[in-house]
Design a protein around this nucleic acid. Structure first.
Lengths: 193, 193
DNA sequence: GTCTATAGGCAGATAGAC
DNA sequence: GTCTATCTGCCTATAGAC
């Protein structure tokens, strides 16, 4: 068996390539051939690591979700005000957009009815996790006085998520990060205490 | 030549079917075969009316944009306060979502890099038109006292558009109209005078 | 683990009869 | 305008050699 140190990174390279293609074009608009070309391997080799596109898709969301969760934990560890946590959260989205990418689950939401069931479930789970984390931050904001939350925190959290996803969606065709920043700023200012 | 009265409606039936497929699955996730099956005709027949999928796509955005423009003119004709115009605007989106559809240009924005250039341009034009209409409404709102616009109207308009697109995008996987309504309400309340 | 070769199906698209 | 028949190419996927 491969040791942890010597573990072949092929799987990660496949995921990196597929991730970029997915976030750029959408799940239905890239193929094994695209990945194979990019990595200089054959399609058959990809099927060895991921039997089918459905399995590849699940692995992509799984890794993306885990990475996003880790980023949220890192924000939590920073001992920031709730206001600053929201700023940091929005900055995560801005970073994705800077790479001319869409949020993975945002782009998957667009083609949701065409996805295999496990991928659909994973998209919902991603949104739920983000919403709950945001709701916690909003509740913190009411206590630390950095935010003014006018309605049910879960509802407001869902609104924040929606606004950021929409801001990415609309800004990307323009290739204009400022467009995203303006929409995010407007939303964050609306929550200022 | 066919008279206006006797005009064959085949083209419209094709567009209706393709429109539903596009707004449900995305441009890359439906085919001529899907439309042909739905209408009970052959693929070849579709190619007679629309030589290629690119032309079909342009026709779809064109008709959608024209219909949307007409809806905006109808709102303008109603002699409403700016606040009520925004409510009516959001209701247009809610109606689309009720049919389990995404905004056509929202779903096309998700797969933007894969679209033929004319379709890309048409998506941008749709967003621009909507943004300018919204900015006009915001300026009206400052005069009629029904809205409080804290920043550049064009920026705020773009934020409104982004928020509504994002609210549709996120709400649709849940099949939950209330999710959209909550996000829209929150945004509209933030603009209340 | 990666390759060659290939299967089987569906994509967009065209020619030509009716 | 709609059909049958067909083309070419790409898709996901598999078998089996190395």
């Amino acid at each position: 068996m491969p040791t942890a140190r010597n573990k072949p990174k092929t799987v990660e390279r496949i995921l990196d390539s597929a991730e970029r293609l997915l976030q750029t074009r959408g799940f239905g608009n890239f193929s094994y051939a695209d990945i194979a070309r990019e990595l200089g391997v054959t399609k058959a080799s990809l099927h060895y690591h991921f039997p089918g596109k459905a399995e590849l898709g699940q692995a992509l969301i799984g890794r993306y979700g885990a990475r996003f969760s880790a980023a949220l934990r890192e924000i939590d560890a920073g001992d920031l005000t709730a206001r600053d946590k929201l700023e940091a959260y929005a900055a995560l989205y801005a970073d994705v957009l800077r790479g001319r990418r869409m949020c993975m689950c945002g782009i998957l939401a667009a083609e949701y009815p065409t996805l295999p069931k496990p991928m659909q479930d994973a998209v919902i789970e991603f949104f739920d996790d983000n919403q709950h984390w945001l709701a916690d931050v909003l509740r913190q904001g009411e206590h630390d006085g950095s935010l003014m939350v006018e309605a049910n925190p879960e509802d407001v959290a869902q609104g924040i998520l929606s606004t950021l996803e929409g801001a990415m969606l609309v800004a990307r065709p323009y290739g204009d990060l400022a467009r995203f920043q303006a929409a995010a700023r407007q939303m964050l200012d609306g929550l200022a205490a």
